[in-house]
Amino acid sequence: MRLKKTKEFVIEFLIHTSGALIIGFVVLIFLFLLKDSLSLFRTYSLKNFFFGKNWLPISEPSQFGIIPLVIGSLYVTLVAILICVPTGIAVAMFIAEVAPSYLRIILKSLVEILASIPSVVLGFIGIVWLGPFLKNALGLSTGMCGLTGSLLLAFMALPTIISISEDALVSVPRSYKEAAFGLGATRWQTLWRIVLPSASSGIIAAIMLGIGRVIGETMVVMMVTGNSPVIPRSIFQPLRTLTATVAGEMGETVSGSEHYFALFAVGLVLFIITFIINFLADLSLQRGKQ
């Protein structure tokens, strides 16, 4: 009896600490980023950082304006989401509700294979095939542009969105569907008005994770978007994202230099953006439940 109690206590304690550890890690990461980013603002003005239109880290004097990077990141992410969310949910609906069982098995395993393609490989495909293809098909000046990045990112986020929304759709209670059919609803009406809304919280979670994947992805965008630090006027132009900037420049900076701190500040901005996205998604999830 006593043994059981201690065992219970130990397990409970472990679970508590691991929960606390996660919170601790997030706070520590935030503090770490904050500490090094704030060092930048001792020598560089906040206004020039947040509203500066030029990212020229190695010029004399250096300019660290992140407007082009933020807009670049938002552009790529937004277009990728516009592509992958509708298609992802549609595929999930097909797999969960429409496809015959043999097709379902094949599709599910194919989606899993899709998820396991390394991002570098997608980058290669982007450089060698997709970029030139888009250039010729759309008559662009170069294939290294935002759209190429968006398409590849959408491709990368698809498996996440498909498999999680599919799980959510499948776990809708059978009785809901039976009730709908009993009232004379067609298959489409049931799927669209009953199953989809009841699975909405899971689907929103899927979209959130997809967005997280897209905005944080580095390798693909660094390889295919051209990385021009210009404020993009359309998705068909080369652009530079926050992640690619940190990855591309971190290696050359001397730790403790202004450029080094500027990259930390970029990391902090990225962290805050993802935090806001998660927060908003959480909010809508809560509202959906009420």
Binding site: V128, G131, G143, M222, M223, G226, N227, S228, V230, P238
Partner: peptide, 16 residues
């Protein structure tokens, strides 16, 4: 020029 593409390797310059 800010339109200049900044590529991460010499090989990707060749490819482009």
């Amino acid at each position: 020029s800010p339109q200049t593409l900044l590529l991460s390797s010499s090989q990707s310059i060749v490819e482009e």
